[in-house]
Design a protein around this nucleic acid. Structure first.
Length: 306
RNA sequence: CGCGGGGUAGAGCAAUGGCAGCUCGCCAGGCCCAUAACCUGGAGGAUACAGGUUCGAAUCCUGUCCCCGCAA
């Protein structure tokens, strides 16, 4: 069970490994997407269809006797859940006799919840990784089956690259651990619940840049919130999305949000230090780099992003 | 038919009815120990496509294609 790209990548590798072929794939219902509001299948559904695995898309599991019955009929040994999005009630969790596994892209008990990847970047964690747990009713709360650290530094990564890296790591851990687990060689370890931290679902407004923050913090937010909701501000009435920046350590007395030129390179003043604009986008236009911004939008220089 | 912005020189943008321009890049030459710096000169456009209005259209109208913001 899963929905976004992250889950699709895991599913793909799982299928290719031919060690464990999923019988049924469960994913969120199709949602209208894009400018024309066309119904779009989730990445997981696309992947499953390609592999010709049956797909179920229940709207909810709560009091859903029908799906409960159907799941029981599959006589599945194991459910594997990765970024599915729906909460599974205990009735469902108890269906497979081997239990329900969840892959969570953080080092649990740190960063439980909806946005572990983003929080990892925002907090500039020294290390991160992925955790395989046995699910219980509470979110990301069950005992740990295994855990693996990512050997890349978080500080050089943005959301898409971290997502990719952890999806791969998650596949590795699954393929490595599953046989052992199924043979009863692994004893799940209770999490240290005192150390637990929680992440909340990200809202669109979270992407709005507060230029009073330090440049360092803003830079992290830009990496974490890419591509959604994106880090943005407003120039006049136009939305301007900042896609890529570079930290520029400097003392200044400019008002936070002020655009200025540093050696002909555009930068924005922050509460502390400043950020060099490497890549950005103005509403209705294509993405441009810093140089193109200077060439085409000289009228914005010395203005303040709000 | 969800709302909206846009397609102009290699790139990013101006010009809203009257000879199509700016910054950058490119080419040639110059300056300099040297340079992504500076100076001089130059090339490069059927203004996305098709039709219409007009003495005259990048600009107004109609249709088509493509890109993007919102929304989800």
């Amino acid at each position: 069970m899963g929905t976004p790209e992250f889950s699709a990548l895991i599913l793909e590798k799982l299928i290719k490994s031919s060690l464990f072929c999923p019988q049924i794939v469960i994913t969120a219902p199709d949602k209208p997407q894009g400018r024309k509001r066309i119904l779009q299948p989730s990445p997981v559904k696309k992947m499953a269809k390609e592999a010709k695995i049956p797909v179920w898309q229940p709207v909810s599991f709560k009091n859903n006797k029908e799906i409960e019955k159907k799941l029981k009929e599959t006589k599945a040994d194991l459910f594997i859940v990765a970024a599915y999005g729906l909460i599974l009630p205990s009735k469902i969790l108890s269906i497979p006799y081997q239990g329900c596994l969840n892959v969570h892209p953080s080092l649990l008990p740190r960063h439980r919840g909806a946005s572990p990847l983003q929080q990892t970047i925002l907090d500039n964690d020294a290390e991160t990784g992925t955790t395989l747990i046995l699910m219980d009713e509470k979110v990301d709360h069950g005992p740990i089956i295994s855990q693996k650290k990512l050997d890349q530094k978080v500080e050089s990564m943005d959301y898409p690259s971290l997502n990719m890296a952890l999806a791969e790591l998650s596949t590795e851990i699954l393929l490595l651990t599953l046989p052992q687990f199924l043979n009863g060689l692994i004893k799940p370890q209770e999490q240290d619940h005192n150390l637990a931290s929680f992440t909340k679902k990200i809202k669109k407004e979270d992407g709005k840049i507060d230029w009073n923050q330090t440049a360092e913090k803003i830079e992290r937010a830009i990496r974490a919130y890419r591509p959604w909701p994106g880090s943005y501000g407003f120039l006049n009435t136009k939305k301007i999305t900042i896609i890529k920046v570079e930290l520029l350590k400097m003392k200044h007395r400019k008002k936070p949000g002020t655009i200025f030129l540093q050696n002909k390179i555009p930068a924005v003043a922050c509460g502390k230090d400043a950020l060099i604009l490497k890549e950005l986008q103005i509403a209705g236009k294509n993405t441009i780099n810093g140089k193109e911004f200077v060439n085409g939008y000289s009228q914005f220089l010395s203005q303040i992003i709000k």
